[in-house]
Design a protein around this nucleic acid. Sequence first.
DNA 1: GCTCTATTTATGCAAGCGTATAAATACTCC
DNA 2: GGAGTATTTATACGCTTGCATAAATAGAGC
Lengths: 218, 218
Amino acid sequence: MNAETATRKSFRREGEDKRREDLIAATLECVAERGLAGATVREIAQRAGVTAGLIRYYFPTKDELIGAAYRAVMQRMTVQASDALRSANDDPRARLYAFVTANLGQPIMDPHNLSLWAGFIALVHADPAMAAAHRDGYLGFRDELEILIRDALLSARAPAESRHTRSHAIAINAIIDGLWLEGCLAGDIFSDGELAETGISAIEAVLGISLKAEGGAP
Amino acid sequence: MNAETATRKSFRREGEDKRREDLIAATLECVAERGLAGATVREIAQRAGVTAGLIRYYFPTKDELIGAAYRAVMQRMTVQASDALRSANDDPRARLYAFVTANLGQPIMDPHNLSLWAGFIALVHADPAMAAAHRDGYLGFRDELEILIRDALLSARAPAESRHTRSHAIAINAIIDGLWLEGCLAGDIFSDGELAETGISAIEAVLGISLKAEGGAP
DNA sequence: GCTCTATTTATGCAAGCGTATAAATACTCC
DNA sequence: GGAGTATTTATACGCTTGCATAAATAGAGC
């Protein structure tokens, strides 16, 4: 009952990891909702339930927070795709099939993910650190894909020398990226699963093998 | 030699079209160089050689200028691709070939274009007008592609019903977009023309026809 | 329970933003 | 060549931004 009712906000001290995660999550929410421009330190802080000053305690500068958020997005998508692999780990062709359909369906193919990704990509050209982060993610993805492709080809008794698998990986990576883009941007003009089907068919054509049955090429 | 040396900047009155083009060009320079955040009205005006206030005379709000700039980028890329078509307008398969290689080479496959495109795409999700602008551009591109595909298939005496050409257009559009992306982001890790070649091969596989010679499928 | 420190709040600042508006001026038309 | 107008400059306002800093406090360790 003091005359000075200027009560300070009560708070809890959280572990460092937890706070960083919360701040990154809040950042992603902001970017997804109103674009990179909407991700101000004040907005992020409010969404994370803390005051703005705290951000600087965990991230020396806002750009570092943004960069951390970008890495988190990429990692999240990568993990989700790998999860799909772990669910169907028997036949190599089925594994490639699962990998592709996972990347072309929920929750990876989502407008929010695209907004985040595009916002960051726009910075890649200006920020070398961001560019390096991107390249690592891209090459990692392609390497994983190339292994899946090689195993699928071998399983179908098709030639799988590295000079073939490399260009196949480039092409199939493009198919996945391109369809992912189309789906994120205008998912409503495609029927359910249409893009995943289209992708599988195109990839089967490129590789010259079937991914659905064990029969291999007819 | 007046004591009041506060001389006003001298200026020329330009035609409305010229000014709008200049302002859009200046905007694109800013976005390409330092991202959307670097495209401030003051910076844009300076680069266009005018004062900031003038922007508002031609564009009621900054967002409208940004939107106009986005449409200009898309149109520029579309026109460049169409130019390639006009240079090789004999055989339908050669036309498709030319269209693909044009989109996967200079000047379309360029990091600047990607920065511009990505910066704008990040806004699509938040801004309905931008979303409409994008959808129009995308569907226009895909329609043009679908016609090229149909003609190429017919020329090779392959089935070309619309339900086939539609899904082919989706897949091939994805291949082009995906490879364009890869090239823009990391062009230096690919040899010259590698991506265009990869794209052509993948597209030939999807369509089941050859695009290089007149011989059709073997 | 007291102390000490890492964590958090609160406040302020300087810079830059988009926009508004009035004054100046280059060009057009008679 | 003089009047009128469309175009352009110049200036200022109100906001928001990222960042800095000092004061407060929650929770751990003795």
